[in-house]
């Protein structure tokens, strides 16, 4: 990893990472393509693709249902659905497809970069806080979030919110980044020696890829679950 260079460019005074742009766009396109294809020819009696799509909808709604009430579930259903699919696809994309050119990786899991996971985490936190303000008004929101249970709790409250934001993003980054790094190392072993190395590395890579698929799915689930928990902290009357 150490010798790898990063392709960046400047636009409107902002720095962009080409890899993240390509990977994120690819993940979004896959998500939209799948969802779009699965939602054609919707019938009252669901079959095949429609069943799968409805299962995912029910799954993400189920995650929300565990922590927020029915009205809020309707408000955040779309967000949880999109978030879950986007993170899920982002986690898996780098496991089977990595494109590198001139020592620069152009396509990998977007979630293997902390800036991406922290952006998603930031979106979630902003949505949660916005919902809290929208529901209770700023004064009550502030009291509930930072001055509870005691007024002196304020620094801890602020710190908690910041830590929630940071851990939500870094947890998934750590898992996916480590998974990809290990996969690259196994790949390196495979091509570093002779046939023996190859024979040893292939089952290892298979096992690790399978495990990473599992981890990626779990992380997508955890991310959406924590999202719904953070939202419920802000919008639920306790």
């Amino acid at each position: 990893m150490s010798g790898e260079s990063i392709s960046t460019f400047q636009f409107l005074g902002l720095t962009f990472n080409t890899t993240n742009l390509i990977s994120g766009l690819a993940a979004a396109l896959i998500v939209f393509g799948v969802v779009f294809a699965f939602s054609r020819n919707l019938k009252l009696k669901p079959t095949g693709k429609q069943n799968a799509l409805e299962w995912v909808v029910d799954f993400t709604n189920g995650i929300l249902r565990d922590s927020v009430d029915e009205k809020e579930e309707k408000n955040f259903g779309l967000y949880a659905f999109t978030l879950f699919l986007f993170i899920f696809i982002s986690n898996q994309i780098g496991l089977f497809l990595q494109i590198a050119w001139n020592d620069v990786t152009y396509l990998r899991s977007p979630t293997a970069d902390p800036i991406v996971t922290l952006t998603l985490s930031l979106i979630t936190m902003m949505l949660a806080h916005y919902s809290g303000v929208a529901k209770f008004g700023f004064k009550q929101y502030f009291e509930r979030t930072y001055l509870s249970p005691f007024k002196i709790w304020l620094p801890i409250g602020v710190f908690t919110e910041f830590i929630d934001f940071l851990t939500l993003g870094l947890r998934i980054y750590g898992v996916i980044f480590a998974g990809e790094m290990l996969l690259k190392m196994i790949g390196g072993i495979a091509f570093s020696g002779g046939v023996v190395n190859m024979i040893v590395a292939i089952p290892l890579a298979l096992i690790w890829q399978g495990f990473s698929v599992f981890l990626g799915s779990i992380q997508a689930f955890v991310f959406v679950t924590l999202t719904s928990v953070y939202i419920s902290h802000k919008v639920e009357d306790e």
Binding site: T8, F11, L12, L14, T15, F16, N17, N20, L21, G24, L25, A28, V31, F32, V35, F36, F38, S39, L53, V57, G77, L78, Y79, F81, T82, L83, L85, F86, P110, D113, I115, V116, L118, T119, L120, L122, I123
Partner: peptide
């Protein structure tokens, strides 16, 4: 710090959400 990336992902996510809302959700 790739502020551009953050912006890009925020917009990408919102657009993706809007498209999914329109065509699937």
């Amino acid at each position: 710090l790739y502020i551009g990336d953050m912006l890009f992902y925020a917009i990408l996510f919102i657009v993706l959400m809007a498209l999914i809302a329109k065509f699937a959700w």
